[in-house]
């Protein structure tokens, strides 16, 4: 087996992670940008709508 083929075979396992990176980046960006606001809204909604 040539060294290049061996490398290709090993690299194939990292492909899902590489393909997931753009999605993870978008999710992280959304979480950083809107996360605190959404959590605050949920907190207010729970306080307004829930009876203790």
């Amino acid at each position: 087996m040539s060294t290049e083929t061996k490398k290709k075979r090993e690299r194939v396992w990292f492909l899902p992670l590489v393909l997931a990176l753009p999605f993870l980046a978008v999710i992280a960006a959304i979480a950083v940008r809107f996360g605190p606001t959404v959590i605050k809204l949920i907190s207010v909604a729970i306080k307004a709508a829930v009876v203790s």
Binding site: L15, P16, L17, V18, L19, A20, F23, L24, I27, A31, G35, I39, I42, S43, I46
Partner: peptide
């Protein structure tokens, strides 16, 4: 690769949701 990427992102989303602290609220 697409199946694996979907699994990784799905798991990350679940972890993010569980760590948001909604349950404590």
């Amino acid at each position: 690769s697409a199946l694996g990427a979907a699994a990784i992102v799905l798991a990350a989303t679940a972890v993010l949701f569980l760590s948001a602290g909604i349950q404590s609220m």
